[in-house]
Nucleic acid binder design. Structure first.
Lengths: 255, 255
DNA sequence: GAGTGGTCTAGACCACGTC
DNA sequence: ACGTGGTCTAGACCACTCA
């Protein structure tokens, strides 16, 4: 490696290692030289080597594991589709299960959910989306979705308590065919939905709950379900680690 | 700050500062104490303080600026909607402009695009999506979208050369009403689209091109446009810094 | 126990922004 | 000139993994 004055040493080392990874000289799953070895080879202190590796880690290119070594990450680690727009009522009603569970089954895995239900005053943002006054009661269903026993997504839904009080929606038991179908049974069938999608780095809580590696952002999918007469009946928020999920939509255009 | 043995010092400091930011004790835009000041106040070395600040920076909570100080970031810095599903042909044809430009105008800003056009053999992934053999020629329109002179998004589109050779699509000039309308004029009107959305940390190139701050991921929106007889006519990829963009969809459900 | 990455220190010098 | 964050060193000890 030619040392170029002007650019920091650790960035030069990171660039050199990055090139080796992208070119394939360091294969996916392969191990990088150890930190002392790199320090020796490139003639710099171990701290500087660590800075370079930290940079690559923050880009999601490598993963350092204490006691074992530093390894090249798999960029496309079998992301799971979250088929956001493919949840059509008819097919869901026929299958008797949720799109999420069905997708998992297509991949040969089993999904579980840990459901908790709360009854509390609506926070400002949720109230606005549901067309309620701040402080009106809402039912919150919080789900931790597990894939093969490991948590892979958070999914929270808010419902106006006035609509769902005393129904299965307000019970902590899982709803096999999904809350949409449960709402339809109450005569509150959603006909359309507004979704917004963003991404950011996970909070420490999210990192812990979803076992998110360094350098991996979360996708935030927020949606509001409306009935035919424009009444909002549900607001949901999904938090999806971006290395494990892909969000899919089918867009049909007006003529 | 109580020192808890068992958890690293820098994480304890990060947690303490995070609490102050979230609680509002440190306001948005406000300056953190300087690194030497924190080292002194909490009785640790400056390097450890820097590790804590680096953690907060990677979460997107603060921004360190050389020569000035470290400041609390604005979490919701006026993200711009990318209204992915709202591009309906009828309204677009009427307005004579693209949804992106119209959205910007709604926010009182002007959009520009820097367009470059290439003609080259289709890479494997693109060929697969367009239903071509690897190596068949495609026209690539690469756009850097500017908002008030600053680059805010990358948008690349691939078209089969056999369909668009010699037309305005293959010319580097901007297309005022968007490539969808240009395709429609060629009798290749898209009726539906498949989109997939993911997120990851930006590459160094992307960080540079789009001026992406530390701790900010990019949203990747990839779509394939189909005509009524299921022929793919365009593949596009947008790269959107997640602190400046929100992707929106309207989902209409089957009855 | 040997080898890996993780934490922490103390101190030096550099680059940038402001006065 | 001064104060800020950025880079870099040398060395110590800890925590984890695996033979």
């Amino acid at each position: 490696m030619e040392r170029e004055p002007g650019t920091p040493l650790y960035q030069q080392l990171a660039a050199a290692l990055r090139r080796q990874i992208i070119s394939g000289a360091l294969r996916v799953g392969g191990q990088l030289p150890t930190e002392p070895a790199l320090a020796d080879e490139y003639g710099m202190s171990r701290n500087t080597v660590r800075q370079a590796i930290g940079l690559l880690e923050s880009e999601g290119l490598v993963r350092a594991i204490q006691g074992k070594g530093t390894f090249v990450s798999d960029p496309k680690s079998a992301p799971l589709p979250y088929r956001a727009s493919l949840v059509h009522n008819r097919s869901q009603r026929a299958s008797g299960t949720t799109a999420w569970r069905r997708d998992l089954r297509d991949f040969g895995r089993e999904g579980e959910e840990i459901v908790t239900v709360e009854r509390r005053p609506a926070p400002e943002d949720i109230a606005g989306l549901l067309g309620l006054e701040v402080g009106e009661l809402v039912i919150v269903r919080r789900r931790v979705q597990l894939d093969g026993g490991k948590p892979t997504a958070l999914a929270d839904s808010w419902f106006p308590a006035a609509l769902v009080e005393g129904t299965e929606i307000a019970e902590p038991a899982g709803i096999l065919d999904g809350s949409d179908q449960a709402m339809a049974r109450l005569g509150l069938e959603a006909t359309h939905r507004h979704d917004t999608i963003t991404a950011r780095m996970p909070t420490p809580d999210e990192s812990r709950a979803l076992r998110i590696a360094k350098g991996v952002p979360v996708l935030l999918v927020a949606g509001t379900e409306f009935t035919g007469n424009q009444q909002p009946v549900e607001v949901f928020r999904r938090t999806l680690p971006a290395d494990r999920h892909v969000v899919k939509y089918v867009v049909r255009k007006d003529a």
